[in-house]
Amino acid sequence: MSMVASGVAPREDIPFTDADFQMLAGLARREFGLDLAASKKPLVYSRLSRRVKARGLVSFADYLALVTTKGENEERLALISALTTNVTSFFREKHHFETLTTVCLRQARAKLDAGGRFRIWSAGCSTGQEPYSIAMTILAAWPDALRRDVRVLATDIDPIVVDRARQGIYSGQDAEALGKDPYRKWIRDSDDGTVSITDEPRALITFAELNLMDPWPFKGPFDAIFCRNVAIYFDQPTQQALWQRFAGLLTETGNLFIGHSERISGPAETSLQACGVTSYRKVTESETKPSNRSIQWV
């Protein structure tokens, strides 16, 4: 779950003009879908001035020329990492995981017993607490999940946080949100005060880097998609296009979970119906077809 970085800007010892900011904002929008308002200029300076210095440059104009140069993909990734920060926790917004258990998993069990598959996508997985929470929820409901065709795809644009997610190592304070049962059994304590995720949840998850603005290298369908507190940093047209793309990847009974400050709007409103707090279900084909019943006049 990525958000535009916040903080107090240091002294501007590297020039950062309004034109520099506008060029950077245009790049962030084109490449990553980020909507950088003019009010973010001091915050952007605070983060990116470090990258300018790290590359031995003396101006933002030089840095912008660098990141738009062919072969500088790693610096573009460093740019997005600098512009975003990641705020997440295990079982954040618990009502979503309750819906996952009582609705998604319950209605999919018959399909699974018949040899079918079950897929969930954590889009914007950050440092991994969300997909691990999903995997633990699945294991709690389906102890035999590892013997079934069950998978969780976890993606994020930032390769640094994806690598941290793969490691599955967290502070003891992070693990407090898990409580004791039934999830604590999938956490291993270490002597240094950290905790690590055990093999069972890990086995359900595939981590990958993905920019949501790029073509998606998969077709689904997904029984559920979690994309929480990501789209809020996109402009409205980008948000609406994203909701529609998600709707197209859901199974007929699939669910979409979004952030507490986000709402579905645009064309996707005909494809997704609210079914809980920031939870939406796919509208079935039969629900969208016009009724053939005639009106009887009396």
Results as ranks from 00 to 15, higher is better:
100 L>K: 12
100 L>P: 11
100 L>S: 09
101 T>S: 15
102 T>C: 07
103 V>W: 10
104 C>V: 15
105 L>P: 08
106 R>W: 05
107 Q>L: 12
107 Q>M: 05
107 Q>K: 15
110 A>W: 04
111 K>Q: 13
112 L>D: 05
112 L>W: 13
113 D>R: 12
113 D>T: 10
115 G>Q: 09
115 G>N: 06
116 G>T: 10
116 G>Q: 09
117 R>F: 12
118 F>W: 14
119 R>V: 02
122 S>H: 07
125 C>S: 14
126 S>Y: 08
128 G>N: 06
129 Q>Y: 02
131 P>G: 06
131 P>F: 02
132 Y>I: 01
133 S>R: 07
136 M>R: 01
137 T>A: 15
138 I>F: 05
139 L>K: 02
140 A>I: 07
140 A>S: 15
141 A>G: 13
142 W>H: 11
142 W>G: 00
144 D>A: 01
146 L>P: 02
148 R>V: 01
152 V>S: 04
154 A>M: 03
155 T>V: 06
156 D>W: 05
158 D>R: 10
158 D>S: 09
160 I>F: 12
161 V>P: 03
162 V>P: 07
163 D>K: 14
164 R>N: 10
164 R>K: 15
165 A>H: 11
165 A>Q: 11
165 A>Y: 10
165 A>F: 10
167 Q>V: 09
168 G>A: 05
168 G>W: 04
170 Y>W: 05
171 S>M: 11
171 S>L: 10
172 G>A: 12
172 G>M: 06
173 Q>G: 00
173 Q>Y: 14
174 D>V: 04
174 D>F: 03
175 A>Q: 10
177 A>W: 11
177 A>T: 13
178 L>G: 06
179 G>A: 11
180 K>T: 15
180 K>S: 15
184 R>L: 08
186 W>S: 01
186 W>D: 03
187 I>G: 00
187 I>A: 01
188 R>F: 00
189 D>T: 02
190 S>Y: 01
191 D>S: 13
194 T>Y: 04
196 S>D: 04
196 S>C: 03
197 I>V: 14
199 D>V: 08
199 D>M: 02
199 D>Q: 14
199 D>A: 14
200 E>Q: 13
202 R>T: 02
203 A>E: 13
204 L>Q: 08
206 T>Q: 14
209 E>G: 11
211 N>I: 09
212 L>P: 02
214 D>K: 13
215 P>C: 00
217 P>Y: 07
217 P>E: 06
217 P>V: 06
218 F>H: 13
219 K>R: 14
221 P>Y: 07
221 P>G: 01
222 F>D: 00
222 F>A: 03
222 F>L: 04
224 A>S: 06
224 A>K: 09
225 I>W: 10
226 F>C: 03
228 R>M: 03
231 A>R: 00
231 A>V: 12
231 A>Y: 00
233 Y>H: 08
236 Q>G: 00
